[in-house]
Design a protein around this nucleic acid. Sequence first.
DNA 1: TAAAACGTTTAGTACATACTAAATAAAATA
DNA 2: TATTTTATTTAGTATGTACTAAACGTTTTA
Lengths: 176, 176
Amino acid sequence: MKKDIEDIRNDLINAIGEKAEKFGFSRIAGQLEGLLLFSKRPMSLDEMAERLEVSKGSISTNIRFLESWKVVKKVYHRGARKNFYEIRGSIWEIETEIMSTIAKDEIDRVKQIFSNSGKDLKNIKGKTKEENEDISFFEERFAEINEYIESAEYLLNLFLKQGEITPTVIKKIKIS
Amino acid sequence: MKKDIEDIRNDLINAIGEKAEKFGFSRIAGQLEGLLLFSKRPMSLDEMAERLEVSKGSISTNIRFLESWKVVKKVYHRGARKNFYEIRGSIWEIETEIMSTIAKDEIDRVKQIFSNSGKDLKNIKGKTKEENEDISFFEERFAEINEYIESAEYLLNLFLKQGEITPTVIKKIKIS
DNA sequence: TAAAACGTTTAGTACATACTAAATAAAATA
DNA sequence: TATTTTATTTAGTATGTACTAAACGTTTTA
């Protein structure tokens, strides 16, 4: 089948929509990202709703979701009442921003959980032999987990310290 | 509130269950991972069902899900008919295995999508000026995406080539 | 001031899916 | 061979949530 540019745009929109769904975001959020990624011009809510054939309410909530994740941004047109949106930056900027945000939040959360349970563990004094074995078993696991968290944090900081992370910087990474 | 070792185990099981849910896996799968992570001994399906207070059917399907992701493994007890399971390795081994599997699959999928659409794009000959602008706009985006994919692949290969990835290796990573 | 043009919120629904209980299958024991 | 023990599969249910249509609120225009 001979495809025109609009068919290709559809394929990409749907593929990104599916990818979003797979990662626990809504399909429409992904489709919107794809639509704006492959649109030369900023689009209004109505245009987006019409193009994706979904309700305007969905566009409204999903576009603000994308805005909060810094995937898209509002663009003001002189003398226009409508809200226009466009993709916020390059794919690289958007994806690395999202990933490092998620990574940071997740690391913080895991640290919190294990530091709390670690404190609780320290407050226990084992009475039986069995209890003492349990406690030291837990301590071993905690040491393992701490090592894991530290490594994740090391990697994340390597990225964040780099300030502006670019593909060029990535290629410079070496394991010595 | 004074917590005993069982309370702490509960906290950890629930925290890991929630974390699993957040990442699109089932809560019980996460709870099972937590349960076995903090159990000195392998456990049978019945024991796990009783401990988590869920149906045996759920344990059966979820434990095999974890097995397929190499999070847990079967352990054979001499002269026992029940199936026993234990965690497959250290947290580090389990998590890096899962992450690199997901990353690899996802990169392959994205490559596939864009290589297909890239071919479709090459088959188009623009007639109007507008069409030609669209085509070259798409080509720019594709170049961006390819750069992104290449960087992701570079990072992944760095990890895979390392063979046995350890926290010690991670700390050796430098950006020069 | 009335009407029109927008964006957001809400009430209702449709759908996917995780879970339970029960049926089934398979293997071991008596 | 019949019974018991175990794991898996299935049918049904409950729950969460993405989505639509419509109501609402706000701003602009006539």
